[in-house]
């Protein structure tokens, strides 16, 4: 486990150093840590991190849906990111902010798979921030629905 972590850390560092090359990918998730530093994460990189999955009802899709992806909190921790809140932006320009303190270990996640398949843009992909709404009513709030941003393309960490 620790070896993997070490690897990932090194990998992250390499990624950071070689960032601009990878940044050209259209489907990459951009993570801006500070004004100067932006990390680009593609699907493989996200898949390399610890995966979390759950099945839940949503207000958007009929029936139960299976989501799997990376914990947002775990992702931030992965890059030892410090800050007060994050601002998330979608492909269509929708933006929402969230205090980092509200992040839980397993909720929300940046879902990369919907019912085990990569999510196309027209089905709110490729990255969809979701909560396990069915597991707890506390997730079924307007705020959480607003924070459930789809077609996520950019996370900005703010002080």
């Amino acid at each position: 486990m620790s070896k993997i972590l070490l690897f990932l850390t090194l990998f992250g560092l390499i990624n950071t150093l070689t960032g601009p090359a990878l940044g050209q990918d259209g489907n990459a998730l951009r993570l801006t840590v500070s004004q100067s530093e932006t990390i680009q994460l593609n699907l493989e990189e996200l898949d390399a991190l610890d995966q979390i999955e759950f099945t839940t009802n949503t207000i958007w899709l009929s029936g139960e849906t299976h989501f799997s992806g990376v914990s947002l909190k775990a992702l931030l921790r992965q890059f030892a990111i410090k800050g007060n809140k994050i601002e998330m932006t979608a492909l269509d320009g929708y933006a929402v902010s969230m205090p980092i303190a509200d992040l839980e270990d397993n909720a929300p996640i940046i879902s990369t798979r919907l019912n085990g398949k990569i999510i196309p843009i027209r089905e709110n992909g490729p990255y969809w921030v979701v909560f396990p709404y069915g597991s707890d009513k506390k997730y079924q709030t307007e705020i959480n629905f607003a924070r459930s941003i789809w077609q996520l393309k950019h996370i900005r960490v703010m002080d």
């Binding site: 207000i59 958007w60 899709l61 009929s62 492909l91 269509d92 196309p120 843009i121 027209r122 089905e123 709110n124 992909g125 789809w150 077609q151």
Partner: peptide
């Protein structure tokens, strides 16, 4: 195509919601 994709995603949600 990009613009269409985004719009399609909206339609996808609208269409899928049976509430």
């Amino acid at each position: 195509q990009e613009s269409l994709n985004i719009v399609l995603s909206k339609v996808f949600v609208l269409k899928n919601d049976d509430s």
